[in-house]
Design a protein around this nucleic acid. Structure first.
Lengths: 226, 226
DNA sequence: TTTGCAAAGATAGTGTTACTATCATTTACA
DNA sequence: TGTAAATGATAGTAACACTATCTTTGCAAA
């Protein structure tokens, strides 16, 4: 049995759906590799076209510009992560166990899990750690938000927020705590590997310790009697 | 009595010290305004030169490129904030009260406080919220770190980490909690104003609520019996 | 079998960005 | 008054971020 996951993306994320053609899939595959290799700033459509063996104009038929492509990749990533969260927390009754699973999924490098043909999820995960926030840290954020480009991110945050409430109905900041977990799962990973003195994980560089930190943070807040 | 604050910056942050000349000070003043107005991506040395009334080449004598200028601005900001933290927590004995003061300083818009002639601190604060993380989220981060360009940020983080330990010597993640507070003070503010569904502050858009959230987060962790 | 049409390929062109170089002029100050 | 440093003025280049147009290919309905 081979299962293939297909994620349906908002049409405003692209000009032409990259999932619907060979060229489109190549754009996704190679853009992930190139961004990972040189970083988003050094990434250009010209280099991407050369890597694929097509021309710049060809890429522009799929994506307005490289920033839109980044938004597409992040949206895809968050959709995929929400699916993984749903999948891996299914049948878990205890909300605490559930939330621990989510923290683990957020903060741990993906092995081959639920996979897709044309996306390398573990490299994409690395990209989102370094480049993900650049998708929304712009002057255009409100317009892009109106086009629902960040919906997958907000949906995931809402799902986690609800799980937090399942642990403690009286907790006052479920959404902020959810976005804090999501962002910190990535940022502590970046710091651990690049600016280790900003973390307590520099010695072992072990993702498992980030999980422990986040668990302590979350469940202290949720069990607090303050 | 008029007090002027002068912050001594690492020499690797610039080619020529902008604090030492009128042109240099104009570069700082106007770059802050322009980045705030159009965002860092749309900011160019040409536009900056036009705003100042000098030429591109003139700017390049002070800063290698716009990314270095951003690093300079962030480094200045974190140095200034560390000074404010030291100043405002001085003479406070209770470590909990001290840490609460820090959270307030991090998460609240600055009014005219400890001021400098050529830097608009409240606009700079806004810039750091949106653009600050772009200073280190790059492929060059390790090299830049070797040049100590992020020292002010790391110093502030260390100071806060020690205050955390003063509250609870046994707490296991002082540095990670410190970087979490710093980053979240900014990011929750950005989300509140731009992607409010990621927070619990969308209704009132009140920074004071971010302070309460962070206090709850921090002191739950530090008083936790888990 | 033809026609028709969308996707992709090929090529060219434009304005802007991110620099680098050079030389003349002003300013500071010794 | 002389000299060096800072600044101003101008020019130039390679890469980037697009846009336009025209041709070719493949495939499907008439």
């Amino acid at each position: 049995m081979e299962i293939q996951l297909q994620i349906k993306m908002n049409e405003k994320l692209f000009l032409r759906d990259p999932e619907q053609s060979e060229l489109g899939k190549k754009i996704i595959l190679h853009s992930i590799q190139l961004i990972h290799l040189n970083g988003f700033e050094a990434f250009t459509f010209k280099k991407l076209a050369e890597a694929i063996g097509t021309t710049e104009a060809g890429i522009y038929r799929y994506f307005e510009n490289k920033h839109r492509l980044l938004i597409y990749l992040t949206a895809w990533y968050w959709s995929w992560l929400e699916y993984r969260v749903t999948f891996h927390t299914h049948n878990i009754k205890d909300p605490v166990v559930k939330l621990k699973m989510v923290i683990k999924l957020l903060a741990t490098t993906v092995e081959d899990d639920i996979s897709t043909r044309h996306v390398d999820e573990s490299i994409l995960h690395q990209i989102i750690i370094t480049e993900g926030s650049k998708a929304y840290l712009t002057k255009r954020v409100s317009e892009d938000n109106k086009d629902h480009l960040f919906k997958p991110y907000k949906d995931l945050c809402a799902v986690i927020g609800n799980m937090i409430l399942d642990c403690n109905t009286k907790y006052k900041y479920p959404k902020s705590l959810a976005s804090t977990i999501i962002e910190m799962a990535h940022l502590q990973n970046f710091f651990m590997n690049n600016l280790p003195s900003l973390t307590d994980f520099g010695k072992n560089k072990d993702e498992a310790e980030i999980v422990l930190f986040l668990e302590d943070l979350v469940f202290s807040s949720l069990h607090s009697t303050q």
